[in-house]
Write a protein that binds this DNA or RNA. Structure first.
Length: 561
RNA sequence: UGCCGGGUCGUCUAAUGGCAGGACAGCGGCCUUUGGAGCCGUAUGUGGAGGUUCGAAUCCUCCCCCGGCAGCCA
């Protein structure tokens, strides 16, 4: 089999390279990997659903493999049976695939390497570099030292190799209770880096593993397992987030002591997005305590939440490009991802007219019915046109009429004129109110010379509003979303749950939409003109009821004033 | 307090001793049958103090600020 060579000539062309690409270019130039292909990986623990921060990591890792014509692995870091579940494995696979990261349909598991890691642990014991420790969790904590003081050596630190071998084997056999023994690396209890103060390699956990069942009762810790996993898979660049920076010396120590293939770990700053939280623990709490409607609630920053909300993989990938990759802590503004989805949806979505909060109008001088032509997508000529039915009785948006408008209001006012999109210019002749003084209906007249596209009138009006025919429109439920939290960085708040936005979801039960939308399928995306981008909901849409989620509003330079 | 890492427009991110640039957000204008989109224009930034240099965001010194680390989580 021919080996794929990776050399400096393979250095990728990119407008602006992040520091990781710079490192890889340099590695290639120096032939650091001896021609081996670049290999990256995404190593999630299956203990929750993926969020947009994971998406950033996936785009980074997969992007590198793609750009350098290397390999990208999807590997589950399933070393803690107490927190991991098959449900999470399944959702993660679906999300990674949806994002478009190609893992060649090979799903890897750290748990498949347990036997190899066990043998390596035995090797370290034989070298006198690891020992079985009988200290309890509390005792280990108490002897670890503090930021300014060294730790104390375990009384079990100098057991003989034979005794350690025997004890470790019996740990594996299940002879000892949870927490009664650990295998520790023998490094340096006085190291200023806590990770080197005789870190734990194995702990006893009598729990069923989602894939291994009860085969194992000792499980490798992250510190021991992670570098080994990368080594086994021949990863060249082990990219992870900043909090693992202090672990790198340990990861290096293990691999060097073992004398095995040694990947390079590079750390980057995790994504933080304004007005939301990103920690798995917090997201889990929002779900478990029903603050949201599941992991895929459209307000959640999860990948499945964005999907249900109407985001596209393209937009998420582009967002990852926009925010870039660096080492400084950052809080990216929500407007960055909103730009990405608007930019994508603007080019691809079919337009439709939908009246969210209907106000009935009667065109008193119009009789009969006609079909008018509407453009499906002004950004895409190939999208063609469609017919919309025009009749005497229409619905317009309540907000498109004001009795006492502020300065600069371009829409309908008493005695004023406005254009109905793709139809005629109308004039408001009479305002009908109920006994509570609320506007319930408008009587208007239309100007027959002003039909869209005829050019028979030179009349100009400032505003154009959308509408639907009362007789033809169909009902739909529309869900409007706002940011989940009221503060920019809720994760930094002590009582972050109190910062949940009470108005993050508004349900409109009876919006009126164009009849062609009756065939819309879950996840179909539209622009409702002047209202924003909407997507058919996957959870509440039934044969009888259409439910639309608002993905994002249109930019609105009037609403801001 | 010990160790590690980091500070560039409001936000994100470039500039690797040689004009501080881009994107988003903002503002102004043009255009427009979506107050959308598009187009044009515009303001705003190198944490501080010294030093090296013809020249410093970049190199050196000191200071300040922010983040991470004392799980048998990852």
């Amino acid at each position: 089999m021919e080996e794929k060579k990776n050399t400096a000539e393979n250095s990728v062309e990119k407008k602006s390279k992040n520091f990781i690409y710079e490192i890889i270019d340099e590695d290639l130039k120096n032939n650091k990997w001896g021609g081996k292909e670049i290999c990256t990986r995404f190593p999630p623990e299956p203990n929750g659903y993926l969020h947009i921060g994971h998406a950033k990591s996936i785009c980074l890792n997969y992007g590198i493999a793609r750009d350098y014509k290397g390999k990208f692995n999807l590997r589950f870091d399933d070393t803690n049976p107490e927190k991991e579940e098959q449900e999470y494995v399944d959702s993660i696979i679906e999300d990674v695939r949806w994002l478009g990261a190609d893992f060649r349909n090979k799903i890897l598991y750290a748990s498949d390497y347990f036997e190899q890691m066990y043998r390596w642990a035995v090797e370290l014991i034989k070298k006198g570099k690891a020992y079985v420790c009988d200290l309890s969790a509390d005792e280990i904590r108490a002897t670890r030292g503090t930021l300014t003081e060294p730790g104390k050596e375990s009384p079990y630190r100098n057991r003989s190799v034979e005794e350690n071998l025997d004890l470790f084997e019996r740990m594996r056999k299940g002879e000892f209770a949870n927490g009664t023994k650990t295998l520790r690396a023998k490094i340096d209890m006085a190291s200023p880096n806590f990770n080197l103060r005789d870190p734990i390699m194995y702990r006893i956990v009598q729990a069923e593993h989602h894939r291994q069942g009860n085969k194992w009762c000792i499980f490798p810790t992250y510190d021991w397992a992670h570098g080994n996993e990368d080594s086994i898979e021949g990863i060249t660049h082990s990219i992870c987030t900043l909090e693992f920076e202090n672990h790198r010396p340990l990861y290096d120590w293990f691999l060097d002591e073992l004398g095995v293939y040694h990947p390079q770990q590079i750390e980057f700053a995790r994504l933080n997005l304004s007005y939301t939280v990103m920690s798995k623990r917090k997201l889990l709490q929002l779900v478990k305590e029903n603050y949201v409607d599941g992991w895929d609630d459209p307000r959640m920053p999860t990948v499945c939440g964005y999907r249900r909300r109407g985001y596209t993989p393209e937009a998420i990938r582009n967002f990852a490009e926009i925010i870039g990759v660096a080492k400084r802590d950052a809080l990216s503004d929500i407007s960055l991802i909103e730009f990405a989805i608007r930019d994508d949806l603007n080019k691809r979505t079919q337009r439709a007219m939908a009246v969210l909060k209907p106000l009935k109008i009667v065109i008193t001088n119009y009789e009969g019915e006609e079909e008018l032509e509407a453009v499906n997508n002004p950004e895409d000529a190939t999208a063609g046109t469609r017919k919309v039915q025009f009749t005497k009785e229409l619905y317009i948006e309540q907000s498109d009429f004001m009795e006492n408008p502020p300065k600069g209001y371009h829409r309908l006012v008493p005695g004023g004129e406005v254009r109905l999109r793709y139809a005629y210019i109308i004039k408001c002749e009479e305002v009908i109110k109920n006994d509570k003084d609320e506007v319930v209906e408008l009587h208007c007249t239309y100007d027959p010379d002003t039909r869209s596209g005829t050019g028979t009138s030179t009349k100009k009006v400032k505003g154009t509003i959308h509408w639907v025919s009362a007789k033809h429109a169909i009902d739909a439920e529309v869900r409007l979303y706002d940011r989940l939290f009221t503060v920019e960085n809720p994760g930094a708040e002590e009582n972050w749950l109190e910062k949940i936005n009470p108005n993050s979801l508004e349900i409109i039960e009876n919006a009126k939409v164009e009849p062609f939308l009756k065939n819309a399928k879950p996840l179909d995306k539209y622009q409702f003109e002047r209202n924003g981008y909407f997507c058919v909901d996957t959870k509440y849409t039934t044969n009888e009821k259409l439910v639309f989620n608002r993905t994002v509003t249109l930019k609105d330079s009037w609403a801001q004033k």
